[in-house]
Design a protein around this nucleic acid. Structure first.
Length: 289
DNA sequence: AACACCCCCTGTCGGC
DNA sequence: TGCCGACAGGGGGTGT
């Protein structure tokens, strides 16, 4: 499911259940997800206290007292739910898709955090917290969208000479970490930039950002902020850890709206769907140039 | 290097 | 109703 707003919403939902809690038992119900579970996964988690739950890009990072970090990626269909009695947290009943409950963390306060992932594109890692940034999953990650380092100059340098379409470049986690297909489509629409434009086309001959490129950082942050305020987007009934449904999908301007009228004021365009690097792009050919 | 394509896996939906 | 192909919020590997 998740892009940055969804992962961050999951983090906020799980934090009351995990931070300060000690893992007393771990159930691992299969040998792997997208990747094999780390060696001695359950044993290495058992008895450990979680000091903080953070996020980097689309990764959740649970810091353990013993200087290891439990890194969790939700892939396309991963979700967490909280079972049992946890002060300050919401709970929801187990659903019928319990067949895809792959990991259960039993915590010392009596509650459980359950990882469910039908497609199993998610994965978990146990890494040395001190050298997390050097791990192959982290070392190439680009700037966080809310970091001030994401500005017109950064994009101009990153896009210069690139023949790939801006759609693909914004999806590249090595440039900006945390964007996915939905929010790239939405940000491009807000900035009035066609997903088909190449990186190089958005950079001036002198290496500076074009006006269109300069609109992107604010457009990215605006859509992410709005999505965070809505608790993320819920597709196919995906629920947040607290059982609630994010509702930003009702605010999509282009994503999954092929054939609909462009919502831009005074634009008479119609949203189209095209495929770029194997993934759908939704945009308005009229107001995105 | 940079880019396009394929794969992992399961579920759902639209068309016939 | 059932079957079948297309497609889905990600990311990593491979080949050109």
């Amino acid at each position: 499911m998740p892009e940055l707003p969804e992962v961050e919403t999951v983090r906020r939902g799980l934090a009351p259940a995990l931070e300060g809690a000690t893992i007393v038992r771990v159930e691992v119900r299969r040998k792997d997800l997208r990747l094999p579970f780390p060696h001695d996964f359950a044993r290495r988690l058992t008895g450990r206290r979680i000091t903080a739950l953070g996020r980097r890009a689309k990764y959740l990072v649970a810091m353990l007292e013993n200087n290891e970090a439990l890194v969790m990626h939700l892939g396309m269909s991963g979700s967490f739910r909280i079972d049992g009695t946890i002060p300050g947290a919401f709970h929801r009943a187990r659903d019928k898709n319990a067949a895809h409950d792959h990991v259960v963390l039993h915590l010392d306060h009596g509650g459980r955090v359950v990882y469910n992932d039908p497609r199993r594109f998610g994965f978990m890692l146990l890494l040395n917290a001190a050298t997390l940034d050097a791990d192959r999953h982290f070392r190439n990650l680009g700037v966080e969208p809310f970091d001030a380092a994401l500005d017109a100059n950064y994009l101009a340098r990153a896009f210069a000479g690139r023949k790939a379409p801006v759609k693909a470049l914004l999806l590249d986690q090595r440039l900006i970490a945390g964007l996915g297909n939905i929010y790239v489509c939405e940000a491009l629409h807000r900035a009035g930039v066609s997903p088909k434009r190449t990186g190089a086309m958005l950079v001036r001959a002198d290496g500076g950002a074009t006006a269109a490129l300069a609109r992107l950082p604010a457009a990215i942050r605006a859509v992410l902020e709005a999505a965070l305020a809505a608790g993320g987007s819920s597709l196919r009934d995906h629920r947040q850890a607290d059982g609630s449904l994010g509702y930003f999908q009702h605010s999509f301007r282009v994503y999954d709206r092929e054939g609909a009228a462009c919502p831009t004021r005074a634009c008479a365009g119609t949203i189209e769907r095209i495929v770029q690097s194997g993934r759908s792009s939704f945009y308005c050919p009229r107001c995105q140039k």
